Computed example of a mutant assay.
Amino acid sequence: MRRRHRRLNSTPELDITAFMNLMIVLVPVLLLGMVFTQIRMIELDFPGLAKGEVPDPDHFRLEVVLVPGGMRVADSERGIIRSLPLREGKQDFAGLRTTLQAIKQRMPEKTDIVLRLGGAVDYQTLVTAMDTVRSYPAVVAASVVEAELFPDVSLGDAPDDLRISAVTDHPLTGGRP
């Protein structure tokens, strides 16, 4: 007679200890390696008048024209306030800040400015110009704070053939070069 051997049908247990150890180490390493970014929004307006709106002749409209050859601060209706050519191959943001501070001292209620950009101006220069026209570092009560210049920034196009030459004095800047 033949014997029948019964095979035991049992399911083996999975040993996932090694996998769990890997996950315990891998998850914190991946979390530490993540780059957390902060997104800042700057509200912008585009220059121009609404349909049917007539410009006020006594309204002072401050604009900064930014081209690869330099910058120019002007009143859009009355002319150039100050020209800032490149200084050592770079834009003169310190001179721009000084000029805007002088204008802000004479017109503290003014908050808007138009930033006109030439076609070849790179993104980093645009961001630096926007930061420069919006505020400047000031010392108040022994701590450095951001003082407001012209936070309401509008963007526009500058003429491509514009050349920035020597520094121009104007009564609004107090005769500063």
Score class of each variant (00 low, 15 high):
P137V: 12
A142E: 14
R97T: 14
A94H: 00
P12G: 13
D58G: 13
R116W: 01
H5W: 09
N9P: 10
M34C: 11
V133S: 07
T11A: 07
L155Y: 00
R82M: 10
V67G: 07
M41K: 06
G174H: 00
A138Y: 02
A129H: 09
V144Q: 09
R116D: 06
A147S: 13
K110L: 08
K90M: 01
F19N: 06
L44N: 07
Q91S: 08
I80W: 02
L115S: 03
L117T: 01
R6E: 09
R116K: 15
L62F: 04
L149N: 00
V29I: 15
V145I: 12
A147T: 04
P85N: 01
I103V: 15
P159I: 12
L44T: 15
S135T: 14
T168L: 12
R78I: 02
D169F: 03
T128I: 14
M130P: 02
T111S: 14
G156V: 10
L172N: 00
V114A: 13
F93L: 14
E63D: 03
S10Y: 04
G95I: 12
D122S: 07
R176G: 10
V114T: 15
D56F: 06
P137L: 05
R6M: 10
G89P: 04
V114R: 13
S10T: 07
P159T: 10
G70I: 11
L26E: 00
T128L: 09
V67C: 07
V27M: 08
V65W: 01
I16V: 09
L62I: 03
V153F: 00
S10E: 00
S154C: 11
M23D: 11
R4F: 12
L14Q: 04
F46R: 08
L86A: 02
A74D: 04
D45V: 15
E148G: 07
S76E: 10
K51A: 10
A142L: 12
G175Y: 05
G174F: 03
R4V: 13
I80F: 00
S10H: 03
T98F: 04
D112S: 15
L8C: 12
V54L: 08
G118L: 05
T173P: 01
L49Q: 00
R87F: 08
G48V: 08
V140N: 01
M130V: 09
L96P: 06
R87S: 14
E146M: 15
V121G: 13
A141R: 14
L30M: 10
R4D: 05
S165T: 15
D15C: 12
L126V: 15
D161K: 03
A50S: 10
Q124D: 10
Q105L: 13
D157L: 14
Y136W: 05
L44Q: 04
V73W: 04
V73I: 12
Q91H: 13
S76A: 11
Q38P: 03
L44V: 13
L26S: 06
M20W: 07
D122G: 06
V114M: 08
R61H: 05
A50T: 03
Q91R: 02
L126T: 13
E109F: 13
M130K: 00
A166P: 01
Q38A: 09
R61G: 06
S143R: 09
H5Q: 12
E53S: 10
T37Q: 10
D169A: 09
V25T: 12
V133N: 04
G174N: 05
G69A: 15
L162Q: 03
A120I: 05
L62W: 01
V29S: 05
E148F: 07
E109A: 15
E13Q: 08
I16F: 01
